[in-house]
């Protein structure tokens, strides 16, 4: 289609790339964590670890930590997509939509901040 929104086509593609790779990496963590849990016969957590404990548990080789990391990675992927939109709108000179993207990021930052304080 040669449509009027072709101006946004590269930005759409960048968002797709961000979401696709975010999902692939998250899925790889998840698959790896589950495979390791099965191999080790290790149960998953019934409550995801706080942020600060995730990396140490991964480094300790705990499958539950890898699964928690996968969940957090997937949760962060849409946040990364908004960052892509912010940069993309700035590059296109669309400051209005770049500003809106920034406000959305700030709101998401608030709830991420709550999670960090856990």
């Amino acid at each position: 289609m040669t449509g009027p929104d072709d101006r946004l086509a590269p930005l759409s593609q960048a968002v797709v790339t961000c979401l696709t790779w975010g999902f692939r990496v998250g899925a790889a963590f998840l698959a790896g964590g589950l495979a390791w849990a099965l191999y080790q016969r290790e149960p998953l957590n019934t409550d995801a670890d706080p942020f600060v404990e995730v990396v140490p548990t991964v480094l300790a080789g705990e499958a539950a930590g890898i699964v928690d990391l996968a969940i957090l990675w997937l949760m962060m992927t849409p946040v990364a997509a908004v960052v892509v939109l912010l940069v993309g709108f700035l590059r296109l000179g669309e400051r209005r939509y770049a500003l809106l993207s920034l406000v959305v990021l700030l709101i998401l930052g608030f709830s991420i901040g709550l999670a960090l304080r856990r």
């Binding site: 998953l44 957590n45 995801a48 969940i71 849409p78 709101i107 709830s111 709550l114 304080r117 856990r118």
Partner: peptide, 17 residues
């Protein structure tokens, strides 16, 4: 849902199982 998920995560309501 990211905003929602992080609030529930902050309260320990994200259960990996």
């Amino acid at each position: 849902s990211v905003a929602t998920a992080f609030v529930f995560y902050s309260q320990g309501e994200i259960n990996p199982t």
